[in-house]
């Protein structure tokens, strides 16, 4: 147990925060759902039914997709784009996927390198991009889940108001889908951009997300 905590405290703390926030969201969302039902003279629902509703699923997936888009883009764009002075960026002149020597792949792999780093061809390509592929797949998967739960929710709403159904493609073109998508994206882009820029001049002693307190403002790609 001690080793579990010592080796994984960051992942465990975030997991605990995630579960607590999700439970809080579910309870608050359930109350809000039933308040709305009351106003519209509809029956309230049990908590368990709310957990498996499109309404709750849509609210959860909407936020998941934007977070994973943020990390997908950050991983991808930092390969080529530079912010001088940022610990999040590579140094100017180093943009690109770098040499096999720098990346320790193929014949430059070391004894302790992952097995697929020593290979060539498709498997090396997959492993070389595996973080991006995983985050990108999670982004697209959760965005798809947002779209189908949103469509289901939207259809139920239209049905209740005696309006005609919309098909899935029709929902993808709806103002509601794009408002809920873009309101999340804009905040992620601002937060990531500001993190890259603020960390040029500001510091957090002890954090690997920051440069060392005494590092010069001009130092790029230096983590504390």
């Amino acid at each position: 147990m001690r080793a579990l905590w010592r080796d994984n405290s960051l992942a465990l703390v975030f997991l605990t925060f995630f579960v607590a926030a999700l439970v809080g969201q579910a309870i608050a969302g359930w109350h809000e759902y039933n308040n709305e039902a009351l106003v519209h003279h509809k029956a309230s629902i049990e908590f368990g039914r709310y957990l498996v509703s499109s309404s709750f699923g849509n609210a959860v997936m909407e936020n998941w997709q934007s977070e994973y888009l943020q990390f997908t883009l950050y991983i991808l764009l930092t390969v080529w784009f530079i912010q001088r002075g940022s610990p999040e960026s590579k140094e100017p002149g180093k943009s690109g996927t770098e040499s096999d020597l720098d990346q320790r792949v193929g014949e430059h792999a070391r004894a302790d390198s992952p097995r697929w780093a020593r290979l060539r061809g498709v498997r090396l390509w997959i492993y070389s991009n595996s973080l991006l592929l995983a985050m990108g797949a999670i982004w697209l998967g959760s965005w798809f889940a947002q779209s189908v739960t949103g469509w289901s929710d939207y259809s139920a709403d239209r049905l209740a108001h005696g309006e005609p159904r919309v098909d899935y493609v029709g929902y993808l073109g709806s103002a509601q889908f794009w408002e809920s998508t873009l309101q999340n994206w804009q905040s992620e882009f601002l937060a990531v951009g500001s993190m890259a820029v603020l960390a040029v001049y500001l510091r957090q002693r002890g954090s690997p997300e920051s440069k060392p307190v005494g590092a010069p403002h001009s130092a790029t790609g230096v983590e504390g």
Partner: peptide, 30 residues
């Protein structure tokens, strides 16, 4: 590294499970 791998798998299961579950909810509820 055994516990690190277990945490890695746990995170993946939560993510893949959550997405799969709510895809199914969205696709079956209308």
């Amino acid at each position: 590294m055994g516990s690190v791998r277990a945490i890695f798998v746990l995170y993946l299961l939560i993510i893949v499970g959550g997405i799969t579950f709510y895809c199914a909810v969205g696709l079956t509820h209308h």
